[in-house]
């Protein structure tokens, strides 16, 4: 099998896997939320209501592809595509198992950061192109929030990079053979996790789409397939962030008995369930509280983490 064919197969496997996971996770989220709220959740369609996602998809496909007359049409159409492209691109560098990676870049971590920064454009443009006040406010919030949290996200990873001595994800996984980085890099993990929630604007840090004040924020005017792209983008983003946490802090595919891919998926799914647990538990903070928390708590913590890691490495190396 040639390299090209091999990478093509990998790409399709990853795409199919990630999209199915994201789509299926909508059902998981609804069932889990129901569980936490003493309900049943979707349980009518298919075994355990598993086909709910399929039904939702059929419904969303049948919807009229509608652009509000007051919107900036090209940008309005472009925005949801952008978020899909950037989140899917991030998937390329994730190493699911030894050899199961689309592009094992030597700057893998940087690529992930770059792609998640690009994702901001999607939200900002959606808010702008919708030409409605709620959407614009949501877009503005999203930009400020994502740019801020981008900073700590990057910084929190640097401890891991310093310990592994590489930006390549396979190298980082390899470096965790003896000890998962979640132990020495606990502050980094905490900051990265919080920043990840903010970056994917998941509840409780979903201020850009806070439905009780901004209706639905930047995607107020979206419906049908374009709305579905935003929704899917959010779930793929969640998958990517979870996968990154697994890779960077929880030893990637490493684990006893089971095949590496299964370990990787189990760890990722657990983290994704954590996202939902958070959503079920916490109320949304105020916007200024969110920003203050970022700059006044997370930034110092990540800087301190960086300094301490550096100092320890320096002492050890010496």
């Amino acid at each position: 099998m040639s390299d090209t064919a091999r990478s093509l197969v990998t790409i399709f496997a990853v795409l199919l896997g990630a999209l199915t996971l994201a789509g299926g996770f909508i059902w998981v989220e609804r069932r889990l939320l129901a569980l936490f709220q003493e309900r049943w959740g979707p349980n009518r369609l298919g075994p355990l209501g598993l086909f709910q996602g399929v039904a939702d998809m059929i419904k969303i496909f049948m919807k009229e592809d509608w652009v509000p007359p007051f919107a900036d049409k090209p940008v309005f159409v472009l925005a949801p595509m952008l978020i899909m492209v950037t989140t899917l691109a991030s998937l390329a560098i994730i190493a699911f198992a030894p050899g199961l990676v689309v592009a094992d870049l030597n700057i893998g971590v940087l690529f992930f950061l770059a792609m998640s920064s690009l994702g901001v454009y999607s939200v900002a443009l959606a808010g702008w192109a919708s030409n409605s006040k709620y959407a614009l406010l949501g877009g503005m919030r999203a930009v400020a929030q994502m740019l801020s949290y981008e900073v700590f996200m990057g910084l929190s990873l640097m401890g891991v990079v310093m310990m592994a001595g590489s930006f390549r994800l396979t190298d980082i996984v390899a470096a965790q053979k003896s000890l998962w980085f979640c132990i020495p890099q606990l502050p980094g993990l905490a900051v990265f996790f919080i920043a990840g929630v903010a970056e994917t604007h998941r509840s409780p840090l979903d201020l850009p789409e806070a439905e009780n004040e901004l209706v639905a924020g930047y995607h107020t005017e979206y419906s049908g397939m374009k709305f579905a792209l935003f929704l899917l983008g959010e779930y793929v983003g969640m998958t990517v962030v979870s996968a990154m946490i697994v890779t960077l802090f929880f030893g990637g595919w490493a684990g006893p008995l089971l095949p590496p891919v299964v370990w990787f998926l189990v760890k990722t799914l657990f983290l994704m369930c954590l996202f939902i647990w958070l959503r079920a538990s916490f109320p949304r903070p105020r916007y200024d509280q969110l920003m203050l928390f970022g700059w006044k708590v997370l930034l110092p913590v990540s800087l301190l983490n960086l300094a301490v890691t550096g100092a320890v490495l320096l002492v050890r190396g010496a």
């Binding site: 936490f36 003493e38 309900r39 049943w40 647990w277 958070l278 079920a280 538990s281 916490f282």
Partner: peptide
């Protein structure tokens, strides 16, 4: 309190459902 909140929510996952299956 954050962790306490998480714990309370988790506990609710294991009580009797209120939904009446109509």
């Amino acid at each position: 309190s954050l962790f306490k909140g998480l714990w309370i929510v988790l506990r609710h996952a294991f009580v009797k459902r209120v939904t009446v299956e109509y």
